[in-house]
Design a protein around this nucleic acid. Structure first.
Lengths: 119, 119
DNA sequence: ATATACTGTATTAATTTTTATTACAGTACA
DNA sequence: TGTACTGTAATAAAAATTAATACAGTATAT
């Protein structure tokens, strides 16, 4: 097993121009989703676990997205005594979920391998 | 012409629990798009210009969205000496635009009138 | 065994973005 | 001519994101 197999969070962070801790946090999500694995200790790091041609961009999207809808976390607090306000968030949430699904469907058209091969 | 025809930014802001100035700014976009009209001066305000059953939610989305893509403003600045970094934003932008289009298509399924009638 | 270099995670600080506030010129109405 | 709006700019406050620091736990190599 070569050292180069494992990318460190520092290396990735350098490439992205961001903080290694942020990388480790975000990648924890991909790890939970089974897309990558990580190894602690010296010469450790992160590497892809699932074959890139089996990873659709939608899978990454849905993992990273988490439980919120993408376009809003619906933090507005309308008047519950208002006939519309009482229901608006429920109705909006339906649309927001439809949007998430539409995005997911769009991203299902391309695998990570296909994306990679553009370069 | 009745006073009630024109909603003031304060009234709308109250209903949304936000600031009237914010409402006036956002609605300026809808005005440019021809969805609403506004009247200055006493008893002025804002009212819908186009019939709600002719306004698809996609139209509102595209106006409010502006020129950026929804999921990112691509403010990352990858290394231009990197073979991937050099092109990544162009390739990502393609996907981000596809996503915007997918959202727009989804929102084209419903008019404002149909949304309103849920209440 | 022991120094080294990683992950994982928590806490706090800094930065950026969003929203609110204040102010006021311009306008239409009564 | 006073009043109540919009439109817009400038600044302040709040919220969200990102960065920095710290350190326990762990695997490797010597």
């Amino acid at each position: 097993m070569y050292k180069e197999d494992w990318l460190t969070s520092s290396l990735i962070a350098g490439s992205l121009s961001c903080n290694p801790v942020l990388v480790r946090k975000e990648l924890a999500t991909l790890k939970e989703g089974g897309l990558i694995e990580s190894k602690e200790g010296k010469n450790g790091g992160i590497r892809i676990l699932k074959s890139a041609d089996k990873i659709y961009l939608s899978e990454i999207f849905n993992l990273v997205k988490g439980s919120d809808t993408v376009l809003s976390s619906l933090k507005n607090k309308p008047n519950p005594n208002c006939r519309v306000g009482k229901q608006i968030n429920i109705k909006l949430d339906t649309i927001l979920n439809d949007i998430d699904n539409a995005i997911s469907n769009e991203l299902q058209k391309q695998t990570l391998e296909e994306f990679k091969n553009q370069f």
